[in-house]
Design a protein around this nucleic acid. Sequence first.
DNA 1: ACGATATGAATGAATG
DNA 2: CATTCATTCATATCGT
Lengths: 209, 209
Amino acid sequence: MDPQQQPANEDASGGSCKGGSFLCRQSSTRWTPTTDQIRILKELYYNNGVRSPSAEQIQKISARLRQYGKIEGKNVFYWFQNHKARERQKKRFTTSSDVPMQRSSVANASWKPEDPLIHSNKSPSINHTGYSLASSSSAGVLPVGQMGNYGYGSGTMEKSFRDCSISSSGGNTNEVSISHGWVGIDPYYSSCSFFEKRKSLHGALDEEQ
Amino acid sequence: MDPQQQPANEDASGGSCKGGSFLCRQSSTRWTPTTDQIRILKELYYNNGVRSPSAEQIQKISARLRQYGKIEGKNVFYWFQNHKARERQKKRFTTSSDVPMQRSSVANASWKPEDPLIHSNKSPSINHTGYSLASSSSAGVLPVGQMGNYGYGSGTMEKSFRDCSISSSGGNTNEVSISHGWVGIDPYYSSCSFFEKRKSLHGALDEEQ
DNA sequence: ACGATATGAATGAATG
DNA sequence: CATTCATTCATATCGT
């Protein structure tokens, strides 16, 4: 497995606007998360219980993930939405109105293969904890203890922690040296800058900050 | 009762190969529908107009199909998704150089007459029972036929603009449906579209670069 | 054995 | 939040 397609170069906009004629649709501009980005996202999702990050959190997260490749806020937003939705959906298909039973047998082996396991080549004893979005920086704020709600049902209260500053310079979180480099901050230009972002979502937008 | 009524014998597909043809022994990862399963799926698709079964239907369908071989909910789900998508895709090309179809209201049962032809096995008379999808005792279960038949559009429009038609059918409805966002630079662009403004993310999702 | 095609699976992006 | 669409990847199967 490891469907991770080849190292997606972040140039992303590579193809650019399907040249040819007007009508520029950033084709192929679908964000392709890198393994590291996915790893982190899952960490946030499972370890931190983040399910529907708020605008601020989204920004922070995306900022942090940007270290690993191009990414925008909406990507993070959609990622969480999808991940959550799919998890639920899976349950919906498999779990038929099953009465509360204790046997833990048949209830699984159905949908998602669940964590694809991002096997990075890290040492067997990694433990790069403290990666919680919230820790790493200021001394004061610290993870408010995860609401320990992995089992869902917490959906609405995930706004426990507050500031998640992404102190990039701490030089701390560098727990694993990513293998294939290319990370870097690439100056990705959007060829089609006409409507690249400011107007992509629903077209509206605004002023509000 | 024994909900776990899984016909163990089917397992990989061993016994299901009664088609008298090939395909026997393929323990691979991916689900390989048996001829019977395909037959039924197509029946549902074409005869019943099922295109996007909902969770419950999926459960029922998969339960029924399980008689013919191993199958899980997700398989059914994906099957319909793919079938629908591919049919559309295929048609997209077929209808490419044709008169601008007027796209009348496709609000009726009329799945295109193309492809039905389910070449089933040699069995001269298969005769699968009627519809007994309903497996539970509870009432309410009925033939899965939920032909909603939303035509979606055979729109052969250029790319993927969903039809932005304001239902103007003669009058039995007064719903104005518009929503699509995305400002395009396309010639057709004119009506539908625009803001949705949901004040929750947009501002945040968008980020400065 | 390959290469082409069909089709299952996965997931980003949207819409309602 | 549920549902749906589009795209792409992975693999099975078939043709030559």
